[in-house]
Design a binder for these strands. Structure first.
Lengths: 195, 195
DNA sequence: GTCTATAATACGATAGAC
DNA sequence: GTCTATCGTATTATAGAC
């Protein structure tokens, strides 16, 4: 059983993470966070000196969850082809929230990237985690020299599909385009490197 | 020569448009806008009752500019293939600002899409304008039945490339992936409908 | 460690003189 | 139409009792 202070801290981070995704970082106030976390008003300052610190804690929280997920996938699937396709399945699995709120990583990077460069650097780490893992898969698939290029392209495809799905609130588009990406991975795995 | 009030209004709208792109809508204050526009503090309320009204005016301003641009392109290029490729050229032409601030349309839709549905509806119109024009080009190219699908895919590709370019500040990625999109259009124009 | 009270500031918006 | 002064609120943040 974790100490009470640990649990309080966790409640704050999880509430902030939830709100930063659904309202955006800049529109989420301290009051919003403490209300959602169910902790008293000024309490939050014991754990976090500034709002920036809360953002950094939520990014660390997300990074931990992503790393766990990628480890699980690496252990659960034997081939890189299956692993990359598991990555693509994020899209239909999260279709509803992606349609409503966009991509949690993309929207945070976009919001902070405008004029909060220090926080953007934090947010970028989420992409870098996926990028490294995907590049490993593409290398194992036989594309060692172009592994990073293919990893970034895969991330870009996911971001583009998610953005249009969000703009139009159109999950049918998401399903259709994800299927197209899966076929692309299958062709790559078969050694067919045409687009 | 437009009336002075017209010019004042224009200065406000153009300053707001500039700041909404570079700082985001929610982080841009009235003070920011009037300072940038060079008009006195309270003056802005003569032209716009609320901040929402300013956003609507900036979207209308952007829609006008986009419509002009598309009309020009429709008149300047004879084939739909050339027109679509002119659209893709937006990416390298605006590489620096896309890398710094992301896509003006995508970032606005993402920011407002979280929890400002009425404003998101405004912002979506920019995508719809491009979508309609692109669909016309794909129809003329011989893909009438799939024109909207191809238009949305083209927009999604552009959004994905821009997002990754912005996240990584990597304009080389943008150049490489745009070239890939151009080849895709050339293949489509040649009747090759494989990916 | 927990919680209340409140400071200090920035915000969107209004009233009204000119 | 232009501009100043200011209102009321919400914000991040602090001081300090318990």
């Amino acid at each position: 059983m974790p100490k009470k202070s640990e649990r309080t801290r966790s409640k704050i981070v999880e509430a902030a993470n939830h709100l930063f995704y659904r309202k955006g970082y800049n529109r989420t106030s301290f009051s919003d966070v403490v209300d959602a976390a169910g902790v008293p008003r000024g309490n939050i300052y014991y754990y976090f000196k500034t709002k920036d610190d809360i953002l950094k804690a939520t990014v660390a929280y997300r990074l931990g969850r992503i790393a766990n997920m990628l480890d699980t996938w690496s252990g659960s699937f034997r081939t890189p082809q299956e692993r990359i396709k598991r990555f693509l399945e994020i899209l239909p699995n999260s279709a509803t929230s992606l349609s409503r709120y966009g991509c949690p990583m993309g929207s945070l990077n976009m919001e902070l990237g405008k004029d909060q460069p220090e926080l953007k650097t934090e947010a970028r780490q989420m992409f870098e985690l996926f990028e490294g893992w995907l590049a490993d898969q593409f290398a194992e698939l036989g594309y060692a020299g172009r592994a990073r290029e293919l990893a970034l392209r895969t991330l870009a495809q996911g971001q583009g599909i998610t953005m249009i799905t969000h703009v139009y609130n159109d999950t049918a588009f998401l399903a259709r385009e994800t299927a197209r990406l899966e076929r692309w991975i299958d062709r790559l795995a078969a050694g067919d490197d045409s687009e």
